[in-house]
Measured scan of single mutants.
Amino acid sequence: MTFKLIINGKTLKGETTTEAVDAATAEKVFKQYFNDNGIDGEWTYDDATKTFTITE
């Protein structure tokens, strides 16, 4: 399955996707992406659209 990440950061904005077997696996991938890029904020997940959103 394809999961999308929408980034609404102070310095970084955009979208990316990842292929994962489930939302929990995608969450781990995206959290690592947050850490690697110094993004910290509030994030949500919409199961209907398989979209994670992080807002700094």
Rank of each mutant, 00 (worst) to 15 (best):
1 M>T: 12
22 D>I: 02
19 E>C: 13
46 D>T: 03
41 G>E: 03
43 W>H: 01
30 F>A: 03
17 T>W: 14
36 D>Y: 07
19 E>Q: 14
44 T>S: 12
10 K>M: 11
50 K>G: 03
20 A>N: 03
22 D>V: 02
1 M>E: 10
21 V>N: 09
46 D>S: 04
11 T>W: 14
2 T>R: 12
49 T>K: 05
37 N>Y: 15
16 T>Y: 15
19 E>P: 03
12 L>R: 07
22 D>R: 01
11 T>A: 09
54 I>P: 00
41 G>H: 09
9 G>H: 09
27 E>C: 14
35 N>T: 13
45 Y>V: 01
16 T>M: 15
30 F>C: 03
21 V>P: 14
43 W>F: 09
14 G>I: 15
47 D>Y: 06
34 F>S: 15
6 I>C: 05
55 T>S: 06
15 E>V: 11
19 E>T: 14
46 D>M: 03
23 A>E: 05
1 M>C: 11
13 K>S: 11
29 V>C: 07
41 G>P: 04
17 T>L: 07
14 G>L: 15
25 T>Q: 12
38 G>R: 09
12 L>T: 09
53 T>V: 06
42 E>H: 12
26 A>H: 00
1 M>S: 09
35 N>P: 05
12 L>P: 03
27 E>T: 04
36 D>E: 12
12 L>A: 08
10 K>T: 12
40 D>H: 13
38 G>C: 12
23 A>P: 07
28 K>Q: 12
10 K>R: 12
5 L>Y: 02
47 D>G: 06
14 G>D: 08
30 F>R: 00
32 Q>F: 06
29 V>E: 06
25 T>K: 04
41 G>F: 15
35 N>L: 15
41 G>T: 06
16 T>P: 02
54 I>W: 15
10 K>I: 15
44 T>P: 00
19 E>V: 15
7 I>M: 07
51 T>C: 04
39 I>F: 14
53 T>C: 06
20 A>I: 02
13 K>V: 10
25 T>V: 06
56 E>A: 08
31 K>C: 06
52 F>L: 01
12 L>I: 12
19 E>R: 12
56 E>C: 14
53 T>N: 03
31 K>Y: 05
47 D>P: 13
33 Y>E: 04
31 K>N: 03
51 T>W: 01
22 D>M: 02
3 F>Y: 12
48 A>K: 10
25 T>M: 11
28 K>E: 08
23 A>H: 06
48 A>D: 10
50 K>E: 02
26 A>W: 02
52 F>S: 00
27 E>W: 14
32 Q>M: 12
37 N>G: 09
21 V>S: 10
5 L>R: 00
20 A>Y: 03
33 Y>P: 02
18 T>D: 01
11 T>F: 14
21 V>D: 08
37 N>M: 15
24 A>C: 10
42 E>R: 08
1 M>Q: 10
14 G>V: 14
42 E>L: 12
41 G>Y: 15
35 N>F: 13
21 V>C: 09
37 N>W: 15
29 V>Y: 14
40 D>G: 08
32 Q>E: 09
8 N>L: 13
51 T>N: 01
45 Y>D: 00
13 K>C: 15
32 Q>H: 07
45 Y>Q: 00
46 D>G: 00
17 T>I: 07
22 D>Y: 02
36 D>L: 12
11 T>N: 13
42 E>C: 10
24 A>M: 09
9 G>C: 15
55 T>G: 04
